[in-house]
Lab assay of single mutants.
Amino acid sequence: RNRTTFSTFQLEELEKVFQKTHYPDVYAREQLALRTDLTEARVQVWFQNRRAKWRK
């Protein structure tokens, strides 16, 4: 699988949710996936990576 390149819009949407919660539930991830045209799995992995970055 190739690396996912996120658009500016997608990143803004993802970051917006991350500001509210670092652990969105499955429903929130599904909604975000639909809004950003990503799969729920991509959204989940983005949050994992974003939390790792945030901890540093």
Rank of each mutant, 00 (worst) to 15 (best):
R1F: 15
R1L: 11
R1E: 11
R1A: 08
N2R: 06
N2S: 08
N2K: 11
N2L: 09
R3G: 13
R3T: 15
T4R: 11
T4V: 11
T4G: 10
T5C: 15
T5S: 14
T5D: 15
F6P: 09
S7H: 06
S7A: 05
S7D: 10
T8L: 08
T8C: 13
F9D: 12
F9Q: 13
F9M: 13
F9N: 08
Q10S: 03
Q10W: 01
Q10G: 00
L11V: 11
L11N: 12
E12K: 05
E12H: 06
E12R: 07
E12P: 00
E12M: 08
E13Y: 02
E13C: 04
E15M: 06
E15T: 04
K16R: 14
V17A: 15
F18E: 02
F18G: 00
F18K: 00
Q19H: 07
Q19V: 08
K20H: 06
K20T: 09
K20R: 10
T21S: 09
T21G: 06
H22F: 06
Y23E: 07
Y23G: 01
Y23P: 00
P24K: 00
D25S: 06
D25H: 15
V26Y: 07
V26M: 14
V26S: 07
Y27S: 13
Y27L: 12
Y27A: 15
Y27F: 13
R29Q: 06
R29V: 14
R29C: 10
R29L: 13
R29G: 02
E30S: 10
E30W: 06
Q31F: 03
Q31S: 11
Q31V: 06
Q31Y: 04
Q31L: 07
A33R: 10
L34P: 00
L34R: 14
R35F: 05
R35M: 10
T36D: 00
T36P: 00
D37A: 15
T39L: 02
T39E: 10
T39C: 05
E40G: 10
E40P: 11
E40R: 03
E40V: 12
A41C: 04
R42I: 14
R42G: 10
R42C: 12
V43D: 02
V43Q: 01
V43G: 01
Q44M: 11
V45D: 13
V45E: 13
F47H: 02
F47K: 01
F47I: 01
Q48A: 08
Q48I: 07
Q48Y: 03
N49S: 09
N49E: 09
R50P: 01
R50M: 13
R51Q: 04
R51A: 03
R51E: 04
R51G: 01
K53F: 09
K53W: 06
W54D: 15
W54R: 07
W54Y: 12
R55S: 08
R55Y: 08
R55F: 07
K56F: 11
K56L: 14
